[in-house]
Simulated scan of single mutants.
Amino acid sequence: MEKINILLVCNAGMSTSLLIEKIKQAAEGKGMVADVDARPVDDIASNVEGRNVVLLGPQVRFKLRQVKEIVEDKIPVDVIDMSAYGTMNGEKVLQQAITLVSK
């Protein structure tokens, strides 16, 4: 079974809890396991170990450069598609993560 480890970055880690569940459900539908964790921007440095990808919530997209510096190009980092985030589309966010990891 394929596994992906995703770190979601947001303001306080609250708004992404529903999205985490949607991503996990989408992964199950694909026969995958998604280990998804949400952390505030300030906690990234101590939470990137073992992650395949870091996705930022649209509300913290201004932190993209800072997050890229923290992960030092060791893992892909991107901002979650705004419409996917707004509609809590776990399938689309999971696909974004898979695409980034595959590059």
Rank of each mutant, 00 (worst) to 15 (best):
G50H: 13
P40K: 01
V41G: 01
D35R: 11
A97L: 13
V93N: 10
V67F: 03
T87W: 04
N11Q: 07
M32W: 14
V71K: 04
Q66C: 02
L8F: 04
V53Y: 00
R39F: 01
V71N: 04
D42T: 10
Q66V: 09
I20E: 11
L55M: 06
S17F: 00
V71G: 03
T16D: 02
L7R: 00
G90K: 07
V41E: 04
V33W: 08
G50D: 09
L8Y: 01
S102A: 14
D73K: 07
D73L: 09
T99S: 15
D81T: 12
Q95N: 09
V9I: 14
R39E: 02
A97D: 08
K30L: 13
S46L: 08
V48W: 06
K3A: 13
L18E: 11
E91A: 14
A26V: 02
M1C: 12
V41Q: 02
V67Y: 02
Y85G: 06
R51I: 05
E72F: 03
P58C: 10
E2N: 14
N52M: 00
I70A: 13
L64D: 05
L94I: 04
D42H: 13
V101W: 09
V60Q: 05
S46H: 11
K103L: 14
N52S: 01
K24P: 00
R61A: 14
N5M: 05
T99Y: 10
K30M: 03
G31K: 15
V54T: 06
V36H: 04
V33H: 15
V9Y: 03
L94V: 03
D81K: 05
V36T: 08
L8M: 08
G29M: 10
A38E: 02
V79L: 13
I75N: 03
K103N: 15
C10V: 02
D73F: 08
V71Q: 00
I4H: 07
R65S: 15
L94M: 00
G50C: 00
L100E: 07
